[in-house]
């Protein structure tokens, strides 16, 4: 199995700082904006970005977790049902600006399911998508991210592995060739 390092901890911190600046540019006071991380792997990223934004803006920003498992379009098309994770959206998103956060944007199907799942909590004024890695030319649906950490050219046979750890020191993002 061949592995290639795309991002390490130092570079990732720079990237995230840049993403936070972009967010603040478009949402100067975060007055009407909420952050929702996509289960399971967008959560850690969402928490981290949330932490950075709260620190630099010095105000409370609502943070939620959304699981889109029950809205996926591949149910009964795979052998085993996907296992759901916790959804925790302790606020209504009616009329809010929502920033969805996930680690990797690949086919776009997870984001489509998430948009569906999100509607159960109200009709947002606007929805934006932030991803750490955008795999170019792999989309199966007309979905694009508004904020991108890094664009990566990949083949279908490759996989992006995001390893984030809680002390923020040993992050690694790999491109892996499947055998």
């Amino acid at each position: 199995m061949q592995k290639k390092l795309i991002l390490d901890s130092d570079l990732l911190t720079v990237t995230l700082d840049r993403l936070c600046q972009e967010l603040i540019e478009n949402h100067p006071d975060f007055e009407n904006t909420v952050i929702i991380g996509l289960q399971p792997r967008g959560i850690f990223l969402a928490e981290w970005i949330h932490e950075k934004l709260v620190a630099s803006l010095k105000k409370d920003i609502p943070l939620g977790y959304l699981d889109a498992t029950f809205h996926r379009d591949d149910f009964r098309r795979r052998e085993i049902p996907a296992k759901a994770s916790e959804t925790k959206v302790p606020f209504l998103i009616e009329g809010k600006k929502v920033i969805l956060i996930d680690d990797v944007l690949y086919t776009g199907r997870t984001v489509r399911a998430a948009l569906d799942a999100m509607i159960a909590f109200g009709r947002p004024e606007k929805v934006e998508l932030l991803v750490l890695i955008d795999r170019k030319r792999t989309r199966e649906l007309p979905i694009a991210a508004d904020y991108v950490g890094n664009y990566v050219n990949t083949l279908d046979s490759q996989r992006v592995l995001v390893e984030l750890d809680s002390d923020h020191k040993h992050h690694k993002i790999w491109l892996i060739n499947k055998d």
């Binding site: 029950f70 809205h71 996926r72 149910f75 209504l92 569906d116 799942a117 509607i119 159960a120 909590f121 109200g122």
Partner: peptide
Amino acid sequence: RPIKKVPS
């Protein structure tokens, strides 16, 4: 949830 239905 406010909307209790999922399409599974």
